[in-house]
Design a protein around this nucleic acid. Structure first.
Lengths: 115, 115
DNA sequence: TCCCATAGTTCCGAAATTCCGAACTATGGG
DNA sequence: CCCATAGTTCGGAATTTCGGAACTATGGGA
């Protein structure tokens, strides 16, 4: 199994990051990977919130995140380990990821009271 | 002509903002509106960079930006004036827009030297 | 008032993208 | 060698995007 493609830091594009994180499911996956010790397997996120996400969809979500340069994936035995590339992306686009994830957190907390 | 729909500040969703700005054309339009005195008409952006954008596409780009809560549009006579809602969005999602627009600026300047 | 020019929207078919079930592949354990 | 588990690929349906052509709205004349 050859290693998966990951864009070099300088090839990471803002539109790819925004597109990847404009899907709430992917944003939630990315939040988990970033938060929970930077390691996560695919089936562990199968149920996000209340919704069950089919694994073919999950697979493509991970691919989008990976190709956007947001995560780094490597195979360990039969499972996949996904690491956030937060620190790298932060170096190239300062403040971007924290602002985006902060915005989601803010929206989530405000919908809890108003809606 | 009844006024166009604009989401209230508290109804603005991060995914809508990210989706709207994940398109480089829309991001460029938004950058212009934000930069150039916060006023811009539709046909004035018909040529962005080298590409000529058909006005039906422009119309829908403006609609996406408006419904995401990024701009405010009002008719003045025969033309449209578009104002950025930067300040409002900044209040709800601190740092988000400046990080995104900064990322685009950064990517643009780095592609000038490497690619 | 009527007509025209300009600015923008709507409609609709084509192209591209997303979704997800089913079949397939890869890896390790017994 | 076979099985179980993790993940990818395939393919068709649903959704979204693109853009040309027709349409609507507004204001400026004659």
């Amino acid at each position: 199994m050859r290693p998966l493609f990951h864009p070099a830091l300088e090839d990471i594009r803002p539109e790819a990051i925004l597109h990847a994180l404009s899907d709430p499911v992917r944003a939630a996956i990315f939040a988990r990977i970033s938060g929970a010790g930077c390691v996560e397997a695919c089936t562990n996120v199968a149920a996000l919130g209340d919704r069950v996400i089919p694994k073919s969809s999950l697979s493509s979500h991970f691919k989008v995140l990976r190709e956007a340069g947001l995560i780094r994936c490597e195979r360990h035995g039969v499972e996949m380990r996904n690491h956030s590339r937060c620190a790298e992306v932060e170096a190239r686009f300062p403040g971007l990821l924290s602002a985006i994830m902060g915005a989601y957190a803010r929206a989530k907390s405000s919908e809890a009271v108003s809606e």
